[in-house]
Amino acid sequence: MTGFTGFALRRAVGAIVTLLAISVIVYVVFYATPGDVAQITCGPRCSPAQVHQVAQQLKLDDPLYVRYWHFLQGVVAGQDYSTGTSVERCSAPCLGLSYRSDRQVMQIILGKLPVSLSLVLGAMVLWLLLGVGTGVLSAWRRGRLTERALTGVTLAGVATPSFVIGLVLMIVVCGQLELLPFPEYVPLSADPEQWMWNLLLPWLTLALGEAAYFARLTRASMLETLAEDHIRTFRAYGVGERSIVGRHALRGALAPIIALNANDVGAMVGGAVLTETLFGLPGIGQELVHAVNVVDLPVVVGMVLVIGFFVVLANAVADVLYAVADRRVVLT
């Protein structure tokens, strides 16, 4: 793959520009948000003097661009923070300290990230298997009862919110049938088997609705490919329908599947809030919602940047996959 270094470099530069833009937007949006950050941070019972002290401590009185500049410095070079009693080093890339807990934002994120990645990547495997499989089956059995039944099921899947699926799964599987205990997050490093059993329901919850989208996309994309001339060639040479659908049509239908998958994986790292909340998984999404509620700006910025990073990363991976799937694609 010649030119891959160039591609990676261009992508890296693009990612940095994107992330800078995201951070600026988040800063501006929060600056414009009504509500006194110092008051909210300090709590409802603080006296004006205390609120003033908090504001000073958080450097809230500095102009926005100064705060943003400090933030950038931290990212590039790291920063020292005074916690009152001691000076703490936050090494680069430093995303700052939480207004609330004095913990480093990077540490908070690194703590939540394995949960989110476990959830999303596991669910991805499921939704690709289920969704693409169903789509291929629909395309193969087009016009028959199987296809109509599958179309109905996937339509229902698209229409059902994930928390409904999750609740029903939890009530039936854990409550009534008692097949699994109520899920509770176990790190992969601690016990892989328990990790899997406990994540099974969250994975299914995320994957079922998502799989429906993939099934519909796969079916439509495959039907389009099946109408192309080269499919006719293989029919005219006696190649069986299984090979035509499974080999030739699926390969041609991959591009939109890769694209949708990249977007969804990237977005779900921080966007699977409902599933995380429902199953009590301490992931990025939940933490982000919490941080927004308490106007914990450094945490919000950090989280949004990390989510942005994963969206950019997922799309770059998708571009490489395009080129692998279709040799005509040149990486630029």
Partner: peptide, 25 residues
């Protein structure tokens, strides 16, 4: 029987040679 005929006993060459081959293989 049709599949045995197609390509085995009678083979077809199509008009547009670009679109008549699978671009991915």
């Amino acid at each position: 029987e049709l599949r045995r005929l197609r390509g085995g006993k009678a083979a077809m060459v199509f008009q547009d040679p670009l679109s008549s081959l699978d671009p991915y293989y």
